[in-house]
């Protein structure tokens, strides 16, 4: 499994356990995209995993907002045309 997908899966589990199923579902929808099967998604996957970890320890509004902001970033970047490979 790709490195970014691994991290994303951990984030999805953390969010699900924290009762944030909608956020987890939004990440699941991105999981099979090139962004996460390639290395491009590693930094954001790592960030959302860390934010998910903080959220699972403290379900405050600010921690939810932090995860949501990352999910929005992921949705934007994962769908962006123009991925440069060469």
């Amino acid at each position: 499994m790709a490195r970014a997908q691994d991290m994303l899966d951990e984030a999805i589990v953390l969010l699900t356990n924290a009762g944030q199923n909608k956020l987890a579902d939004r990440l699941t929808a991105q999981r099979e995209k090139f962004f996460f099967t390639s290395l491009a998604g590693v930094p954001l996957a790592n960030k959302v995993k860390k934010a998910g970890s903080e959220l699972s320890a403290d379900g405050s509004e600010s921690n939810i907002a932090a995860v949501e902001a990352l999910v929005v970033q992921i949705e934007d970047k994962a769908d962006a045309p123009g991925t440069v490979l060469t």
């Binding site: 099979e32 995209k33 090139f34 994962a78 991925t83 440069v84 490979l85």
Partner: peptide
């Protein structure tokens, strides 16, 4: 590729 990869239409 820049159109197909992000959408998952292609898996390189």
């Amino acid at each position: 590729l820049g159109v197909m990869n992000p959408r998952g239409i292609f898996q390189p």
